[in-house]
Design a protein around this nucleic acid. Structure first.
Lengths: 113, 113
DNA sequence: AGAAGTACTTGGCATGACCAAGTACTAAGC
DNA sequence: GCTTAGTACTTGGTCATGCCAAGTACTTCT
């Protein structure tokens, strides 16, 4: 029961929400997403992000197009499908509800109960 | 990739935090915890809560004592150990950091990027 | 004794984040 | 032309944990 593991568990699902949100702002490819996630201290590694993108694509929430690059192999630029947009909306509600629920519990002081 | 599943994933780890917090407020047994979690709409079922409590106890974060009940079998009243208190503190930081990170991402509008 | 209610236990399943390699393409150096 | 370095994407396996569905055990009421 170490802290690091709990942090990993807490990230579950939330990452999916963050990735969808990043993509909702415009077409983008994986490495740039990683940079943004890292900047927000939502540490993620390649091997986590790529499978996630594939899952989202297979679920019909994302689509991508190949774009040639001047410095390396071509890149997959992702964008949300209509279904993805709708899903993101519902996810936002879920996330906000979860924060609210947690707050309901953690804001209670010892005295309250 | 349905919504309900994502909600389940998002709950991972957070539940542990909530449970520790509830127990930090005073000795309590499982059914009452369930009531409080349900009231906060953090829906959880027996089969999730009991194993979690056992894990936390085995990790040395919780301890319990049996207390006779007038209406049924005896109950396990849980409370935090010192180690549990320390862990809860670190978990609070983790959770708040996670919220902050998520906010950094979701607060960016389309224009930003 | 039998039924109902409360409290706790247990075994198996599914999901997703992680790790660690591995593949594939481009450009630069020799 | 071959090797090396850099960038992008893939894949197989592991692990923790929330969930489901029964099951056990104790008490009270009829």
């Amino acid at each position: 029961m170490d802290l690091e593991n709990t942090q990993v568990q807490m990230r579950k699902g939330i990452l999916e929400y963050c990735v969808l949100h990043i993509i909702s702002r415009g077409e983008i490819y994986a490495s740039d997403m990683l940079d943004e996630l890292t900047a927000a201290k939502m540490i993620v590694v390649e091997g986590t992000l790529y499978p996630l993108l594939t899952r989202l694509k297979n679920a019909g929430l994302l689509e991508y197009k190949w774009v040639e690059s001047k410095s390396g192999p071509p890149r997959k630029y992702y964008k949300l499908t209509l279904e993805g947009s709708n899903f993101l909306e519902k996810l936002t509600e879920t996330w906000e509800g979860l924060i609210h629920s947690t707050e309901m519990i953690t804001s209670k002081s010892k005295a309250a109960s």
